[in-house]
Structure formats: C-alpha cells, structure tokens
Computed example of a mutant assay.
Amino acid sequence: MSSNLKESIERLQEAFRSIMRVIGPQLSEPVPGLTGQQYYILYQLEQKGRCTVGELADSMCVKPSAITAMIDRLDKHDYVIRDRDEEDRRVVHIRMTDGGKDILSQAKQKRQDTLQQHFSALSPEEMESFVSCFEKLALAVHAPKKE
C-alpha cells in the first residue's frame, strides 16, 4: 500500500469516527424506543412487503435468534405481525402493521432531517462528488473478488 493511500485511509477513519460520534447516536435511535436495528427491519419489510425471519437475518448478517428477539420487541409495540405460512406451518412471515408504517415514516423523516442538517455543510458539487465516491465504493465492495 502506498504511503499516500495509507495516510488517506487514516484521515478517512479519523474523520468518520469524529462524524459518527455526533451523528451516530442521532441515527441509531431516530425516534424514542426504536433502535437502529429495528429501523432496519421495518425498512426491509417496507421494501419487500413481508419476510421470513431467515431472510431478515441474512439481510442483516446475524443469526435468526437475534432477529427473533428484535421481532418480539417490534411485535410487543404492534409494529409487526407474524403470519404462519398456510402450506408450511413451520415458516413464519413477518409483515408491518399500520403502526409500524407510521413509526417508520417518523424515523425516516427524523433521519432525513438529521442528515440534511449535517450535509448542508457541503456545496451541491461536493455532495455530488461525495455520493458518487460512495456509490463507486459500494460497487467495488460487492464486486466479485479477483484472485
């Protein structure tokens, strides 16, 4: 690794830590009582309509048992409903309730407001460059590894 790349990565890591110390807590609980992980589950349900516990676990790279505990808390607040599959009773589908849709909408707005507040420090050109770099990195991360 070149010294310039190494130095740039160190600067990036320090800047990222500094930013996340401030923004992280604001994003991790966008509305009281809804954790970042619960937000992500509701977001996934909004995107897909309904999912099994296994599908949610895969999307979050965690074990199904971890998702089950999160689903229990979401269910307790009436944000999700569990439905048994009619053909295979062992399969349980999770879907969002109207209450879940409402809390997700509130959380998305809060996250949008928070990010808008902080990203307003960038010019439109800087923001476009920043987003383009992140999109390029996202593609590189998901590209097949060369051997």
Score class of each variant (00 low, 15 high):
Thr52Glu: 14
Met96Ala: 06
Ile103Trp: 01
Glu29Tyr: 00
Thr68Tyr: 08
Asp88Glu: 15
Asp58Val: 05
Asp98Arg: 11
Tyr40Glu: 13
Asp75Glu: 14
Glu126Gly: 06
Gln116Gly: 15
His118Phe: 13
Met96Tyr: 00
Lys48His: 15
Glu125Val: 08
Asp113Thr: 06
Ser105Gly: 11
Gly33Arg: 04
Glu125Met: 06
Asp72Cys: 01
Gln37Cys: 03
Ala57Tyr: 05
Arg90Leu: 10
Arg84Leu: 09
Leu45Asn: 07
Ser65Ile: 10
Pro30His: 03
Asp72Trp: 04
Gln106Leu: 13
Arg50Gln: 14
Gln44Ile: 10
Gly33Asn: 03
Arg84Gly: 06
Asp83Asn: 12
Val92Ser: 12
Ala57Ser: 07
Thr114Asp: 00
Leu56Asp: 08
Met70Phe: 08
Pro25Arg: 04
His118Arg: 09
Tyr39Val: 06
Ile71His: 02
Pro32Asn: 07
Asp75Gly: 05
Asp98Phe: 07
Gly100Asp: 01
Pro30Thr: 02
Met60Arg: 12
Ala57Thr: 03
Gln116Asn: 15
Gln44Glu: 11
Val22Glu: 15
Arg73Glu: 12
Arg111Val: 03
Gly100Val: 02
Gly36Tyr: 08
Ile81Leu: 13
Gln109Lys: 13
Gln47Ile: 13
Arg111Leu: 01
Tyr43Leu: 09
Ser65Gly: 00
Arg73Tyr: 04
Met96Pro: 02
Gln117Glu: 07
Leu27Thr: 06
Asp85Ser: 06
Glu29Trp: 00
Ile103Gln: 02
Asp102Tyr: 08
Ile67His: 09
Thr97Gly: 05
Gly33Trp: 03
Leu45Val: 09
Asp72Glu: 07
Gly49Leu: 07
Pro25Lys: 02
Glu46Ser: 10
Arg95Ala: 04
Val31Gln: 01
Ser59His: 05
Ser105Met: 00
Gly24His: 05
His118Leu: 00
Arg90Gln: 11
Leu34Gly: 02
Ser65Pro: 00
Ser65Met: 11
Pro30Val: 02
Val53Arg: 08
Thr35Phe: 03
Asp85Met: 00
Asp85Glu: 03
His77Leu: 10
Ala121Cys: 11
Glu55Trp: 10
Ala121Pro: 04
Ile41Cys: 03
Ser120Ile: 05
Gly100Asn: 04
Ser28Met: 11
Ile67Met: 09
Gln38Pro: 12
Leu42Gly: 07
Pro32Met: 07
Ser65Ala: 12
Ile81Val: 15
Tyr43Glu: 12
Val22Gly: 09
Pro32Phe: 08
Gly24Met: 06
Met70Gln: 13
Met70Ala: 11
Gln116Phe: 10
Arg50Tyr: 14
Gln116Ile: 08
Ala66Gln: 11
Leu74Gln: 05
Pro25Tyr: 03
His77Phe: 10
Glu86Ala: 11
Glu126Cys: 05
Ala66Asn: 13
Asp75Ala: 12
Arg82Trp: 00
Gln47Glu: 14
Met60Lys: 03
Asp88Trp: 12
Cys51Met: 15
Leu122Asp: 08
Thr52Ile: 11
Asp83Phe: 10
Ile23His: 05
Arg111Lys: 14
Pro32Ala: 11
Met60Leu: 15
His118Asp: 03
Gln38Cys: 07
Tyr40Lys: 12
Ile103Phe: 01
Met127Gln: 13
Leu74Arg: 03
Met60Tyr: 01
Leu42Ile: 05
